[in-house]
Design a protein around this nucleic acid. Sequence first.
DNA 1: ATCTCCGATGTAAAGGTTTACACAAGGGCA
DNA 2: TGCCCTTGTGTAAACCTTTACATCGGAGAT
Lengths: 350, 350
Amino acid sequence: MRRVWSDPVQQRKLATIEDVAAMAGVSIATVSRAINEPTKVADATRRKVAEAVARTGYTTNAMARSLRMRRSNMILILAPDVGDPNFSNILVGLETEASKRGYGLLIGNTQNDPSRETDYLRFISSNQADGLILFTGHLPFGFGQDRGETRLPPMVAVNEPVLGQDIPFVGVDNFEGARIAAEHLIAQGHRRIAFIGHSTSREINRLREAGYRAALEGAGIAIDPRLILDGDGTTESGRAAAELMFVRDALPTAFLCVNDATALGVIIALNARRYELPRQFSVMGFDDISFASFVSPSLTTMKQPRLRIGEAAMELLLAMLAGEQPKSREVLLRAELIVRNSVSRPGGSD
Amino acid sequence: MRRVWSDPVQQRKLATIEDVAAMAGVSIATVSRAINEPTKVADATRRKVAEAVARTGYTTNAMARSLRMRRSNMILILAPDVGDPNFSNILVGLETEASKRGYGLLIGNTQNDPSRETDYLRFISSNQADGLILFTGHLPFGFGQDRGETRLPPMVAVNEPVLGQDIPFVGVDNFEGARIAAEHLIAQGHRRIAFIGHSTSREINRLREAGYRAALEGAGIAIDPRLILDGDGTTESGRAAAELMFVRDALPTAFLCVNDATALGVIIALNARRYELPRQFSVMGFDDISFASFVSPSLTTMKQPRLRIGEAAMELLLAMLAGEQPKSREVLLRAELIVRNSVSRPGGSD
DNA sequence: ATCTCCGATGTAAAGGTTTACACAAGGGCA
DNA sequence: TGCCCTTGTGTAAACCTTTACATCGGAGAT
């Protein structure tokens, strides 16, 4: 049995820049330059160094480098729920872009727990991360509020904007997306369209509801407040909202839901009541999360360009780290209408 | 407009241990001890230091600390696909346990690209990470094979074991899980049970197929090789496999699928052929990924204890880092049978 | 022939910790 | 009283880079 892992302590000392310098017969400064600024070094020297690097297997010690340069080439990702499907796909985009530029990703799962948010701040304040991607929709607890004039580190909000803090945001155009969704329903002939929102993430909800209202007004349809319900964004709350509609007297012909999870709940409620979908009721979601195509009927929804959101956010953050002024404080990407089978013309309702 | 983010360079220099020492009127060594080994410091001194720390807002610089101590308190997670739902839930467990013990998580998305795997090795070889969690089922490209006797860093395989490398593994008991699944079908009265596998991750497939065979043999059912098909683990391959069954003459009454994605494909194929499920065919999956409960019929499957897998893996890795000998080289957790609506007694087939 | 300038390289400081070792003071014991 | 041991603290080295500044030759200009 080879006990490969049993000794956690690095045994064979790693080669340092000094070993390389000795082998190449130059000073450590020259080695450093040969590696980092090759043009500043004579060709012959550069070759000698390159060979010594290869023979020693030298890798520059990231800790020493970071200590000296005061930057770690790490980005901290702060998210309330790492398991959220919406998160993980954006993460792929973030990672792609970051690793392309030599940055690493450090992930922090806060579960909306203030103490965990504070906890992760140490990565920032100890220089272990140069910048921050925020999924949480608010500044980490312990920032800004306590010390009056704390400088905020470079950061970009994603998924949900941070209100009142002048923090660059990259995300989907929620207003426009919801308007397109509602217009799709209207184009199918629906006039009585419900909106099931969720107050949990206020800003997203506000924008999507605004898009819904804009579409209806644009089509000359009066807003019926009885058709606007509020949930918390979960499947269960969608189900409950649909049930509530039946208890009241006012029924819609179509449900526009603030997100796919809610839409799923609505579908479950309608299926349970033995309605035939989409003939009797149309349902639309927003997000296009993975199960959207597997529900029955498969869900017509607005697709968030998650990969591109991640890439764009990271690109923006890295540009900020490089000292560039971002062109705009908000990058909005268009949501794409995905037509599946949960929407049709209003027909034999009841 | 407050340009909070516009200057990426840390402006106000952070307090160092020296500032604290000066304020408390002690040496830096004492400050360090007061923070890290409080018992070795007199009470009065400790209080002075604590106050100075509070007043300066001192946080120890992680880079300097890591440089000196040759350990970073970071764990690198190497996964082929960060967006995979199976991954993200294990990640939550990993993160919970790691952050509880003061470790950070660095994530690397390799997309099974050897060059990206090699790329991420720099985190290990430059001391930027102390240990490694491997989702990939193989050593990162560039490890082991090239230098004959390279010491492997402390690592734990998760999800899929690494063959022939004596690397500790934490995961679900695939053999046992598949056997339980098959036995569940047998208990419902099925005798002709198909197994749709996938050769992409060989070891997982091998074990699950073995569990299937063991169950059948245990019940005295002869294995019919025409009922064993191979796919690649995707929904599409599940669909294709089910279609193939219909082309051939041998039909099962139940499909045991190597994973939920495959099972979903089978369900789609059967639904498309207008069979009534589960009356005419039963279908079982494995994994219990999020959409399993939303498919129609909802999927009976074996649930992987993902959270616990993550926790156990991290616990093991950290123990190894602390120099402990792991008790066993393999931690197998039981999969749990989740009964939903895709399985019933074999009935009116055709 | 001298001066200037430039390119290539070396020297040494700085970045912020932890910790081995030395040292001082004080208490207990012979 | 003298010695030893313990407890608490300080000094300085080590961790490994990057980079400002100095130095040194040689080429080109006068």
